[in-house]
């Protein structure tokens, strides 16, 4: 005899395919959904389908969007001469939370990672270079992750873009706010010293 009725087993199997969800979590969510009202379940199902039907990549910046071009690219109040290059759409959200950046974005959808078979051809670099040809961009802020892959991507971009006469800057790396210097390792400390600024 099977542990679960067929439809419930199928739901658990589907949930288990989601990132970070194991057997136990999948069972818990499946039982929760089974107990939920039909309206709740339908709302969730509709939301899933809508995401698949309506969300696409912005033809300008490659961010996830419902309307093309996206809200950032079509907003006339944003500075059109500064472009922040990020690895993924999540990163756009993190930068927007600061409310300090008012320029445009470009999403690469990855970083150079030979171990994952990601080379320059797999990144959205062609569309970035197309945007730069317009001559409107004055500065590129490279906001890739502060790890080996992100750093390699940043240096690669800088070699690609600097010959075009555009200023390329990198977000600062170093000691996180709220931590203590004694716990910083030498690479983090070195990056913090390299990125020091006058006050």
């Amino acid at each position: 005899m099977k542990d679960f009725a067929e439809p419930l087993a199928r739901l658990i199997d589907e949930l288990k395919r989601l990132p970070g969800i194991g057997q136990k979590s999948a069972q818990r969510i499946a039982f929760h959904l089974q107990r939920a009202s039909r309206e709740d379940a339908e709302r969730l199902a509709r939301a899933l389908i809508e995401v698949k039907d309506k969300i696409r990549l912005c033809s300008v910046c490659n961010n996830l969007t419902e309307l093309d071009p996206c809200g950032f690219c079509s907003d006339p109040t944003r500075a059109a001469d500064v472009l922040c290059v990020v690895e993924s759409p999540y990163n756009v959200v993190a930068i927007e939370k600061t409310r300090e950046y008012h320029g445009l974005y470009h999403v690469l959808h990855g970083a150079l990672s030979p171990l994952q078979g990601i080379g320059p051809e797999q990144l959205k670099l062609k569309s970035l270079l197309e945007r730069l040809k317009s001559g409107k961009i004055r500065e590129i802020i490279v906001a890739t992750n502060p790890n080996v892959e992100g750093e390699a991507t940043a240096i690669y971009l800088s070699k690609l873009i600097k010959p075009l006469g555009i200023k390329v800057t990198r977000i600062a790396m170093g000691i996180p706010v709220g931590s203590e210097l004694e716990f910083a390792d030498e690479i983090t400390m070195l990056k913090a010293l390299e990125g020091r600024r006058e006050i």
């Binding site: 030979p114 080996v148 750093e151 390699a152 940043a154 240096i155 390792d185 690479i187």
Partner: peptide, 20 residues
Amino acid sequence: EIIESFFDMQKDYRQQVATQ
């Protein structure tokens, strides 16, 4: 804790490919 880091050399894509 780090004894020796090879972080900075992997900034170069060709070095990164060789290292990985």
